[in-house]
Amino acid sequence: MQFLLDAEQREFARTLDRLLAAGDTPAVVRAWSTGDHGPGRLLWGRLAEAGVFALAVPEKYEGLGLLPVELAAAFVELGRHAVPGPLVETVAAAALLDRLGVAAAAEEWLPHIAAGEARLSLCLPAAGPYALDADAADAVFVVDSEGEGDRLLLTRESGPVQPSVDPARRLSRPVGGSVVARGPEVTEAAAHAAGLAAFATAAQALGVGQALVERTTAYVKQRAQFGVPIGSFQTVKHQLADALLRLEFARPLLFGAALTLEPADVAAAKVACGEAVYAVARTALQLHGAIGYTAEYDLSLWLTKARALRSAWGTPSACRARVLADLG
């Protein structure tokens, strides 16, 4: 029984934190939101050098994985720094291609994913009609149903961007595509990929929540009203205490899911992280007051992402149903 990150895993997370803190991610996010993907691509490359994408790629395809605990630790940091891009979709696509067992597709894409040279988006029937950041991706993998079974398509085309509440998330419907594979293997691989996407999204959400608590704690310590820091008021303290509480009890579900990747464990983590991050965002906004309600203030980058991640790759309701369905 050693249910804690080890020293190496903690150091990996700290390394990413330092890398991202030095990368001025708010400016990267704002550029990404306008369709300027240049700074985001540079950041993507640095994350790849640190090993982030290799965590989702098996060793035989020049990766390190699959290492779910390290992947969770990494995605917490990505969320904490509001890193934009199809991060979840790329690692989930890697899981899909690995599980599918179509050698040509795996050999074509997986080493490039590990090296940070391929950004992929992904569109699965269970998660809705949109692909995230297709305009920034090298390709979009799409699973759909045709006649009797599922098929996997590869496309580079997508429809117009449908703006998300999070300006950094650029959604669009994939268009057309060529068939990569068909049949029950596709269905099974898609389910596996959807699970990994839910898992990575839960981690990302937890990191977003952590950033919101950190920023709000710092704010209420320095913001004075009635002659004292507002953080000395009990009602402010208790809202932040509840925010921390939600995150700290979502975290063990995330890492518990990392140890099994069982659908029910992932669903429990997704519910807890998704609900926590949204509640924390509400608190962060309320405690910041009007300044927090502006697009200009950087808090907005995390506030809007919190809402999007709550539903992405598994709504709270669908995940709750999954938890109960799998109890046996």
């Binding site: 704690t217 953080g231 000395s232 303290k237 932040l240």
Partner: peptide, 17 residues
């Protein structure tokens, strides 16, 4: 307990209860 969480885990300043 919430006072303790806020003051000792988050480092918020002590104030009137």
């Amino acid at each position: 307990q919430r006072d303790i969480i806020a003051e000792r885990l988050l480092g918020l300043p002590k104030g009137r209860r």
